[in-house]
């Protein structure tokens, strides 16, 4: 089982990113679940959501304590939350950032998703949309296939700019 924890702020699309990722994994022929950890629905508050991907049906509902990967959609969350908590040794960390971030003992990578979203004019209510470009970056890392990633995005969004943004993130991915 591959377990991913996504850190974001309320309203940034962390929950949707988890859902897209699970859908893409299912299109890859795997089993997947996406679970938000819900509190009161407050914009801007740090939130986490979880994705589990496996070859067998998934029977776990509790939160992910030892993720294989951590995805940070908003780097400012790292000031208030220990995003590395429980991350398995040698696990992956992806941060939405212009600057390269390195975390010793982990495989680190980054892409400027915000920049990509702004370039594609993917902005809703003043906030850049991060949930579709991040799927492109994760596809590059081999979490899901590119074809399934695009299919999942098209299933959930009609605006083709979302696919373009995912493709841009795929290209810009450093790793």
């Amino acid at each position: 089982m591959f377990e991913i924890r996504i850190h974001s702020r309320g309203g940034q699309g962390g929950v949707t990113a988890a859902r897209l990722l699970a859908l893409a994994a299912i299109y890859d022929g795997k089993y997947a679940t996406a679970a938000p950890f819900y509190g009161a629905e407050r914009r801007g508050a740090p939130i986490v959501s979880f994705v589990r991907i496996d070859d067998k049906p998934i029977r776990i509902y509790s939160q992910i304590r030892k993720p294989d990967m951590v995805v940070v959609l908003d780097a400012s969350v790292m000031d208030v939350v220990d995003v590395l908590q429980g991350l398995k040794a040698g696990g992956k960390v992806f941060v939405n950032s212009q600057q390269k971030k390195t975390f010793s003992g982990y495989v680190s990578s980054n892409v400027d998703l915000t920049g990509i979203a702004l370039k594609e004019n993917l902005v809703v209510s003043g906030s850049p949309i991060l949930n579709t470009p991040v799927i492109g970056a994760l596809a590059k890392m081999g979490i899901v296939s590119v074809e399934s990633a695009k299919k999942a995005i098209r299933e959930m969004f009609t605006d083709e700019r979302n696919v373009k943004a995912a493709e841009a993130a795929f290209r810009e991915m450093s790793a």
């Binding site: 859908l23 089993y31 997947a32 679940t33 996406a34 679970a35 938000p36 819900y38 998934i58 509902y61």
Partner: peptide, 12 residues
């Protein structure tokens, strides 16, 4: 169905 645990989880 369990609140959030099942009501809000995405599964096939």
């Amino acid at each position: 169905l369990d609140g959030f645990l099942l009501s809000h989880i995405m599964q096939p």
